[in-house]
Design a protein around this nucleic acid. Structure first.
Lengths: 217, 217
DNA sequence: GCCCTAATTTACCCGCGAGTATATTTAGCC
DNA sequence: GGCTAAATATACTCGCGGGTAAATTAGGGC
């Protein structure tokens, strides 16, 4: 399972339909096509929601028929899960990256927040946030919960570290992590790619708010 | 339309199934039964999600059949909308209440946050947050957007007021409102009625966090 | 140039769930 | 106590969409 280190885990910018668009497109690059399927699904889910997106929709957006989609993916549920995982990985990477840093907890937290915001404005953002356990089988649901919990723990441990090194005021780390995650996750609800602010600028505002608070200093 | 001021707009604690439980209890109080339908729907949606809840489910939870549900409600979409509206009203009331207050902007904002948290931990919380435009017809979607926007404007104007009276540090009011709303809305995702903290305690932690910030003072 | 296999399609099945036409019961009223 | 209207139930329709069996097309190796 955990083999093939070369595998690109996050389908970055697979230009979707183009892969199938031209007539002589029966090439054999399973990986990239699979990624394109996932990307297209992610966009569709974001635009119309999971339950309002049929696999026929996704297929036709790829200029392809439904069984082709099934050729790359087990079923609809797995499709959602893959989108979810792709988005989550972006955040996990951000957290992992900061484990090697030697700055204060507060600074590391800020760096993670920036990556987090970026992940949420990506096409996977919606799936990460909206992938409700309700839409998933018990097995998948457990997996998703575990992954989400990892992120939560990551945030909390950064907060703890900050408190320990004095860069963060002592606080309820659980509620702080929830508030932070909530503010960030909510981005997926309102962000549109033509927004005035990009992920970086949003993150900057959030960091300022959470660091300084509303009360004048 | 806007008549009947006596009408109880938010179905508070209509004890659901009991209303129909006994055979001889077919009293004709449309209002209360309608509220029970909405309450039951809200709980069901929260537990299993909108698309995973059939009207047959809701009906059978009320010890009743589907046509009876249709007797109280136009269709499934309207049912979701009613749940949404019921929840939203709790927040709106909170905001309206503070308009008459003479305290600082920051204090009024805190009061609204407390009410907001309470609304989100109610059975309607999930519907308010999850009622995606995607699940609604264009008409309903517009209504929902308008209502949500009202709340957003309410928050922003409190923030502005706070900045004006010096109780809130100057900041990007839009992003601040979004962060605040996000942190609060997210409660609906994680809160369970058997949680250690109740709505009041959660609100208290959030207010402290947003007022003081993470950086030590 | 031929065969094997991966990729893709055509043409289905089938169940679920929203919504409804119609019958039936019940309560209130005179 | 019989009439009317509201309340509820029975028993449907029907389309959408997830999923699949089986045929077809195209490459790539030899």
């Amino acid at each position: 399972m955990a083999d093939r280190p070369a595998r690109k885990n996050v389908p970055q910018r697979a230009s979707g339909p183009a892969l199938w668009a031209s007539v002589g497109a029966r090439v054999r690059d399973r990986e990239r096509k699979r990624d394109a399927v996932i990307m297209t699904a992610a966009r569709a889910f974001r635009e119309r929601g999971y339950h309002n997106t049929s696999l026929d929709d996704i297929a036709s957006e790829l200029n392809v028929t439904k069984p082709t989609v099934y050729h790359y993916v087990e079923n609809k549920e797995q499709l959602l899960f893959e989108c979810f995982r792709a988005g989550l990985k972006l955040i996990m990477d951000g957290i992992a990256e900061q484990r090697e840093s030697t700055t204060t907890g507060r600074e590391r937290l800020a760096a993670v927040v920036a990556r987090y915001a970026e992940a949420l404005t990506s096409d996977f953002g919606w799936c990460m946030v909206q992938a409700e356990n309700q839409d998933l089988s018990p097995t998948m649901s457990r997996k998703v919960k575990a992954l989400k919990s990892e992120i939560d723990q990551g945030l909390r441990s950064l907060i703890r570290a900050g408190i320990a090194d004095g860069s963060i005021r002592p606080c309820d780390e659980k509620m702080t992590a929830f508030a932070l995650a909530g503010a960030l996750n909510w981005i997926a609800h309102w962000y549109r790619s033509d927004d005035k602010l990009d992920a970086g600028q949003i993150a900057q505002r959030f960091i300022e708010l959470f660091e300084l608070g509303l009360r004048p200093r």
